[in-house]
């Protein structure tokens, strides 16, 4: 590719034509992403309950939420939730993908089954799981024969919700890993076999390194979706017991729509946004140095 000087005749017209082509899709990005983000940042500077007139507070909302123990605890709960969910999701997804990749009989059917929770409405799944976890009439306790108060116990509530979240997303992870596996040329494995590598060595030395681009993608998107988890928590625990499952998105919802503190909810969203961007950039930094498309 030859470097182009900005402002040179033809390339510039090309650029304009290019922009004209992406224009329509830019409308969506600007209207549904950029403008709302700016509006949220704006709202975060006000005290506003939707009904009485908004009052400008400057950065006061940020001062309040950053010293609010509930918000701090909520960030902690969210971090813990991500740690419980994402590693298991990725490991399990990879494991399933490796199994499915072997084209055993019925693997197409399993592919569909694993992806089903991911394409279903999380709120509905949350409600169904709440029934399954019900201490008296729930299927889980009926099967084990023990009464466990899954969603009311401060120790078990978050792991229970995390398990449901893993179950929902593991099929999605597996699908991406399957695509990644399909993209690894068979010759590499053949060559390794000829050189006497065991299948375990082939997995660790060939498959996993070559799956790093997939891992990067799956990790980043899953961290983002897990941090934003709302529906599952809303349906199953509403943030209880004692705030043990009160992830940030759930707290933001309550601030905005049951307490009607729009400014504070907006400032929480902005903090969450900044944290997510930071985490994503850190991941990008880490993987940029380690992604291999060829065997080195």
């Amino acid at each position: 590719m030859s470097p182009r000087v900005p402002g040179a005749g033809r390339p510039r017209r090309d650029t304009l034509t290019g922009y004209a082509f992406v224009g329509p899709s830019l409308i969506g990005v600007v209207g549904f992403l950029l403008v709302p983000v700016i509006v949220v940042i704006g709202i975060s500077l006000f005290r506003w309950d939707l009904v009485s007139p908004a009052r400008f507070l400057g950065l006061d909302n940020y001062r309040v939420i950053l010293t609010d123990p509930a918000f701090g605890r909520s960030l902690l709960v969210t971090a813990l939730f991500v740690l419980l969910v994402v590693p298991v999701e990725i490991a399990l997804g990879l494991f399933l993908a490796v199994l499915l990749h072997r084209r055993l009989p019925g693997s197409v059917a399993f592919r569909v089954i694993f992806a089903l929770p991911w394409i279903s409405a999380p709120l509905a799944l949350g409600v169904v799981w709440k029934w399954i976890f019900d201490p008296s009439d729930g299927a889980l306790n009926a099967l084990t024969g023990h009464r466990v108060e899954w969603l009311s116990s401060p120790a078990l509530a978050l792991p229970s919700v995390a398990a449901v979240s893993i179950w929902m997303h593991v099929g999605y992870v597996a699908l991406f890993y399957l695509a990644g596996l399909a993209g690894i040329p068979e010759q590499y494995h053949e060559a390794a076999r000829i050189d006497g590598a065991s299948s375990r060595q082939a997995l660790w030395r060939i498959t996993l390194p070559l799956l790093r681009p997939t891992t990067f993608f799956v990790l980043t998107t899953n961290v983002i979706t897990t941090v934003q988890t709302f529906d599952t928590v809303y349906a199953m625990t509403q943030g209880g017991p004692a705030g043990r499952t009160d992830v940030v998105a759930s707290l933001i919802y309550k601030e905005a729509f049951t307490s009607f503190r729009m400014g504070r909810a907006a400032s929480m969203s902005v903090v969450l946004f900044v944290l997510l961007v930071a985490v994503t950039l850190a991941q990008q930094q880490y993987f940029r140095q380690r992604i291999t498309y060829e065997i080195g």
Binding site: S152, P154, G240, P241, A242, G243, T258, S259, F260
Partner: peptide
């Protein structure tokens, strides 16, 4: 005017009281 915010604050704590945790 802000009674529903009050209710939202009360609920998780009283639920714990009813569970016998507090």
């Amino acid at each position: 005017p802000r009674v529903s915010a009050g209710g939202t604050a009360v609920t998780p704590i009283l639920q714990q009281v009813f569970l016998g945790q507090v």
